[in-house]
Design a protein around this nucleic acid. Sequence first.
RNA 1: GGGCGUUUAGCUCAGUGGUUAGAGCGCUACAUUCACAUUGUAGAAGUCGCUGGUUCGAAUCCAGCAACGCCCACCA
Length: 727
Amino acid sequence: MELPKHYNPEESEEKYYKLWEKSGFFNPDVCKEKGAADPSKEVFSLVLPPPNVTGTLHMGHAAMLAIEDIIVRYARMQGRPTLWIPGTDHAAIATQSKVERQLYEQEQKTRHDLGREEFLKRVREFAQGSHDTIIHQIKKMGASLDWSRQAYTLDEQRSSATYAAFKRMYELGLIYRGNRIVNWCPRCSSTLADDEVEYKETNAVLYTFRYAKDVPIAISTTRPETKFGDTALAVHPEDKRYREYSGKVYTINLGAGDQEIRVIADESVDSEFGTGALGVTPAHSQIDAEIAQRHNLPSLQVINEKGEMTERTGPYAGLPVKEARKRFVAWLKEQGLLEREQQIPQNISVCYRCGTPIEPLPSLQWFIAVNKEFVLKHSQITGIASGSQTTLKELMRKVVAQKQITILPEQFEKTYFHWIDNLRDWCISRQIWFGHQIPVWYKNGEIFVGEKAPSPEWRRDPDTLDTWFSSGLWTFSTLGWPKDTDDLKTYHPTTLLETGYDILFFWVARMILLSGCLLGDIPFKTVYLHGLVRDEKGKKMSKSLGNVIDPLDMISKYGADATRLSLIVGVAPGSDSKLSENKVRGYKYFTNKLWNISRFVLMQTEDYDPKATPQLSREDEKILQEFRAMAQEVTRHIEGYRFYLAADSLYQYLWHTFADKVLEDSKPLLKDSATRAARQYVLVSILADSVKLLHPFTPFVTEAIYQNLPLAEKKETIMIEPWPVSI
RNA sequence: GGGCGUUUAGCUCAGUGGUUAGAGCGCUACAUUCACAUUGUAGAAGUCGCUGGUUCGAAUCCAGCAACGCCCACCA
């Protein structure tokens, strides 16, 4: 059969993805049924990190899909029962803000103008649209996901898992409600978890002033307007300058009534900074709150959830913080209290979603206690016996420290431990509407935890859960938990988690926490982290820079196979990579080269008998041996997650050995009837095994070639061909 | 402030103690009715960041330094 002169990706991609879906082999149950998977072999399971339903997929998603599909197709060709679960994430804050922005741009309305129900309807519509686009894009990449098991963090089953998880952790005493300093985003009007806060370098003014003329110690601050909430003045215990004042109490008036300021000594004060004295504002600073706790100081809230001054601040009440700062500094000057104004660089904390500066506030919120002891009933965790006491932090640390979970590349284990060691309680309540509404009900000071109210008089907590709480259940909520399903027994813990290093804390660590707590087990055995896909200059791709390369664009211009290769080759695990259209084009040339290699072989083997076993020459043997050596090397690279080297070896071999040397040398031998049959055998077998080795990387072109090969026995699809070498 | 990483050809990157350091892209010259011009052949191009050490031998191991990048951290 003769192939067309140039490979046409579009045609193959359309045709073969349909064939694969129809075959059912994406589903391990079908593979077992039809004999394509060996039930006695170790299962391979992987969850797709669910993309956010905030829009469309970018090159980072494409790279993730390429890597995971390589691993999954390889496992499947090993004959292992292989499950890759697809799904999407509702991404609470991200999605809600996106719809809010649209609503404001298009209709100048806020979510409050629509009301909770109507607004949520809009968000759901938007999410559905994004979902459909995303699924289409995933399929375009050739990802071999089991669509029969598709999940969504906010669908019925995942929601009931989320509520069940909350209830169990509440009963274990690990979820509690508390009044604590939280990271408050005034724009989102919601709390944020510690790791949802980012830092931005800015220039700030450091004001040095005295509370009053008779207070002997000046303080320095960049937030003078918070000083109405000060209840102490802290100095270092060793600081000789201030030792004599320790314990004194001053009554001051900053223009909003009397305040008592006690001079205290605390180790946490840096005597080198500013005047070496710190105004303690327990209500608006985490560190001050800790000092206040140690010294039993009262806490006065002077800024509210809207970022305005509270009633307590008298003439300043109702003013936005910036305005209050301006007026208060002017007042300090008038009073002759201001000693110095100084420009300093400062890292301010901002919301990771909208960039608005964070306002630390005391607030009544739900938390997960990471240091609290609890009894782990059934434990599969090394070093923690069933029924023994542990803490979430200990559990998270142990599974990695004892190598029950391996993180690759290894350097990220250090980052992980560093994070665990600094971990504080996780604030999981959010004051937004889109998401899982907290399953807690109130009536006359009583609390009931459950998905449904015991009777109609109970009022539900209006807040929703942090999106990472539900996605943290992903490895088991997708398998049917809290029900004890066959899927859960068969596929959990999952074999591998493959994701970007940027969500190591957000997601990976949370999955370890929640799986450990709720199942007493690890969620996955290995974590493989990939880096960011940047533009050709190494800049982050972003709409505002106009340097975004769209995966669908690349696929339609150069094909999915070329796009996949361009995201794999030259990309070291865990490090960022650079992508240019030129690189994609280069791999398009390769798919075409492969196509023409096949065209040549097929043209030379029209009279080839696949059942014959011709006598091979020494040269023939040598060529086959060289191929086998390469095939083993490729296999070892895949086993070691070195996909960049595996793909490169195949590229080198096929182009510069097989095409440039073997095929060229074969031309005379094919013309000679004495050597023709043996050479045909050599070419067909190397080509057949090569497309199998390449199939995980470039599934479409290899399927197209496979379907045309003159083989004695052929499967329905190359996808279920056994891997041609073992190591 | 703490931690992590990177530094090899113009560009992107391989190469974890052993002969003259490799690939892709780019560049130069030549070829071409041949499976493929989305091609082939040949070629130019590197004091392997710097300094010192270990060794018969170092891009590779060790120490120090430098530049760049990233992560964590509420010097208020």
